[in-house]
């Protein structure tokens, strides 16, 4: 006789991208990479919609542009720049590691284990510092220069 077993679902879902445990920084970099990717995609769609307003003539274009001079949109534009800087430099790290660089070589596992995640960490930290510098200079250019 087959017994019907009621299993409880326990998938983390999107919450699992950010939460779900006390993991290393790369796991949060993964979540941020996805979020910034989606943000840039949303901006891209908005960008096409706005530039499409040119079809409606000069007045339509100028009124669309006037909307984007408000502080809120300026901040939004800075967020897009921030997302772009992070996404580009973290993406560079992913390309480098996906091609097998900076990961070390396969070896016999000896405790305490040193994994490829540890070996690529200097690259991760270095690129994040570059991203931070770009964001700081970009922010200064947005608001103060």
């Amino acid at each position: 006789m087959k017994v019907e077993v009621k299993h409880r679902k326990n998938k983390l879902g999107i919450v699992g991208w950010i939460g779900g445990g006390r993991f290393g920084a790369e796991r949060y970099a993964y979540a941020l990479h996805r979020l910034t990717g989606l943000g840039i995609l949303a901006y891209f769609l908005l960008h096409i919609f706005v530039t499409g307003s040119r079809i409606g003539g000069r007045q339509s274009w100028e009124s669309a542009m006037a909307n984007f001079k408000t502080p809120l949109f300026k901040f939004g534009e800075f967020l897009v720049f921030l997302a772009f800087a992070y996404h580009a430099l973290n993406g560079l790290r992913l390309i480098i590691t996906e091609l097998g660089f900076m990961l070390g070589k396969a070896q016999r596992p000896v405790f305490p284990y040193v994994t490829s995640v540890h070996r690529q960490r200097p690259l991760f930290i270095g690129l994040m510092i570059v991203a931070a510098i770009i964001i700081i200079f970009g922010g200064a250019d947005f608001y103060f220069i």
């Binding site: 993991f23 993964y30 994994t115």
Partner: peptide, 21 residues
């Protein structure tokens, strides 16, 4: 996308993220 959590938690040092890359 190389979150690396699999390698962090592996109790035997298998490093699955490395194998995938």
């Amino acid at each position: 996308h190389f979150a690396g959590a699999c390698s962090d938690v592996c109790p035997k040092g298998v490093d699955p993220a490395f194998a995938i890359q």
